[in-house]
Design a protein around this nucleic acid. Structure first.
Length: 557
DNA sequence: CCCTCAATAT
DNA sequence: GATATTGAGG
């Protein structure tokens, strides 16, 4: 029968006494196998006939923890039948024949492993792992609060094995299953590795994937393992890992309340980057805002940064990764402020990202500027070799950032202003900020700021360089911080922005026309929404004096 | 104190 | 090599 986690934790010298059902038509082979198994203190029940074996399994399932079943050429049906019948019993298939399809079939039918004969001690020694694995995955499924029992069982098992009444400081709580196994394993033989190392990683992983939520614990643990390893190497480990352990050890044995949160925090503790990226990727989904109104802070996005650890102390400084989302906010803030007013503190304010520090922003800003300075001039020169009068400021941006509608992008005189900082040509392939270790971003929404010729892109991808005096800030739907010193009074409702000479007036016209004809689309950059005043003026000029209330409510200044 | 730049670390 | 953090200088 399936061994439960509880059984395991109560099991004195596991895996001694493990009950093995052995089914092999070849009695010699069976005897040989049996002796080997018994040498490891396994209890072996040998069957040479699969019917008998099946009978035994069904009549007294509690008598077996694991089965080893020989697959022979002539009688593989029997073996398969066994597999199908004894589903609850972790069954290892073994055979002389080395036929991939047979192996696959066995696995597909539920075999936990396929071992090629001859079965060395090394191969046999660790078959108990399947029992453990099954026990824990079963625990995960059956119990409403799946993970806790598993954890507890693991802990108690460790205690047993380590024979230390005290919780070892190893952060038991955090120990991943793999390492648990190693600790228990009498001899983590290296030799066995090349053979089969029963309970191969694949198996366990498979288990995790299958059980998914149920086995999250394990998954997380494995994550943590990696983290720990990293920490073990990193120089600043001492503090970090110690803290982690200290904090983490305490909750052992206590009811783990909000599991997920806890785990995340822990992961976060151990390794900021990882936790962070994880959380980002999680939050991102919900965050993918409809472009413009996103100036508003989204607190969620922050959670990844490091705020997740309210509890105290010397947390190592988290590495902020500038996800597209974050960067987008950043760019928005910069645009809103104007490049010359974009200083870290204000950007930080505008971004409203909790946990983000001024330093972080400053650093990012530094990079941002660098990119602009180095990349833009090239682009610019390339495009307007002789239009040097444009660069009234040190920033060679053209005053017109508006893109024509996507179908007419061929007339666009400007390319992506931020080649480097823009997205890669194909949104799906990106991962600009993320290091290789990041889970891939959702290919779609992450790059709103990308300067493809669509309307949205302009907003994020093509921040406008404010003219030196009286600039119009980037279009801002909220209008909250919108200060436009230029043309509030313009009667036409169209921006007549003062630019004396423009590279391509037709383009401007086109853009404006487009903007007018499709008022539901966000305005291209460089165009500002008409002020309330101008709208009212225009309306009255056209003889319309009554204004629906909601228009008034929506002020633009 | 804040910003920027440069050095340093990952 | 790129990116983020740390530190020094203004």
């Amino acid at each position: 029968m399936v061994c439960t986690a509880d059984d395991l934790s109560a099991w004195k010298d596991f895996p001694k006494g493990l009950k093995v059902l052995l089914l092999d038509e070849d009695s010699n082979s069976a005897a040989e196998l049996k002796s080997k198994l018994e040498a490891m203190d396994y209890i072996v029940y040998t069957f040479c006939d699969e019917n008998e074996a099946l009978l035994a399994v069904s009549s007294r399932p509690e008598s077996f923890h694991v089965a080893i079943v020989e697959v022979s050429i002539d009688n593989n049906n029997g073996s398969f039948k066994f597999l199908e019948t004894a589903k609850d019993l972790p069954t290892i298939m073994t055979s002389n024949i080395h036929c991939i399809s047979t192996m696959m079939k066995c696995i597909a039918l539920g075999a936990v492993e396929f071992l090629r004969k001859p079965l060395s001690e090394e191969k046999l020694r660790n078959i108990w792992q399947h029992v453990v694995h099954k026990a824990f995955s079963a625990a995960g499924k059956d119990i409403s609060e799946p993970l806790k029992p598993v954890k507890e069982s693991l802990v108690s098992m460790l205690h047993l094995q380590l024979e230390s009444g005290e919780p070892k400081n190893e952060g038991l709580d955090k120990t991943e299953d793999a390492s648990v196994i190693h600790e228990i394993d009498p001899e983590p033989s290296t030799a066995s590795d090349k053979y089969s190392a029963p309970s191969t990683p694949q198996l366990e992983q498979g288990g995790r994937f299958l059980a998914d939520g149920d086995c999250q614990d394990l998954t997380n643990c494995s994550t943590e393992k990696e983290s720990c390893e990293q920490d073990g190497e990193s120089k600043s480990v001492e503090t970090t890992s110690d803290n982690t352990i200290a904090e983490v050890t305490a909750p052992v044995g206590q009811p783990l309340g909000p599991r997920e949160a806890t785990v995340k925090e822990e992961a976060d503790l151990v390794d900021g980057t990882k936790g962070e990226s994880t959380m980002y990727s999680q939050t991102q989904n919900g965050v993918n805002n409809k472009d413009s109104d996103a100036v508003a802070a989204n607190p969620d996005i922050v959670s990844g940064i490091h705020s997740s650890c309210p509890n105290k102390a010397n947390r190592k400084k988290m590495k902020v990764d500038w996800t597209p989302e974050l960067h987008k906010k950043f760019v928005q803030a910069v645009d809103q402020l104007g490049i010359d007013q974009a200083i870290p503190s204000r950007i930080l304010e505008l971004m409203k990202v909790e946990g983000l520090t001024r330093h972080n922003v400053a650093s990012h800003l530094q990079k941002y500027r660098m990119h602009r300075r180095h990349i833009l001039p090239k682009e610019d020169d390339r495009r307007w070799p002789q239009r040097d009068h444009m660069q009234r400021s040190c920033y060679p941006h053209k005053p017109i950032m508006a893109f024509p509608p996507r179908y007419s992008n061929h007339v666009v005189p400007v390319g992506p202003p931020y080649p480097m900082w823009g997205p890669p040509p194909h949104p799906s392939s990106i991962q600009m900020w993320g290091s290789h270790s990041y889970p891939p971003w959702q290919p779609t929404e992450s790059w709103h700021w990308m300067p493809y010729p669509g309307v949205h892109a302009d907003a994020w991808g093509c921040p406008v360089m404010p003219p030196p005096l009286g600039y119009c800030s980037t279009f801002n739907q909220n209008g909250s911080t919108f200060h436009c010193s230029g043309t509030v009074d313009n009667r036409s409702g169209m921006p007549q922005n003062s630019v004396e000479h423009q590279p391509a007036e037709e383009v401007v016209d086109k853009v404006v026309k487009e903007a007018i004809s499709k008022p539901w689309l966000p305005l291209p950059l460089g165009l500002k929404p008409p002020s309330t005043d101008s709208v009212l003026a225009e309306l009255s000029r056209q003889g319309i004096s009554t204004i629906p209330p909601h228009i008034n409510g929506r002020n633009l200044t």
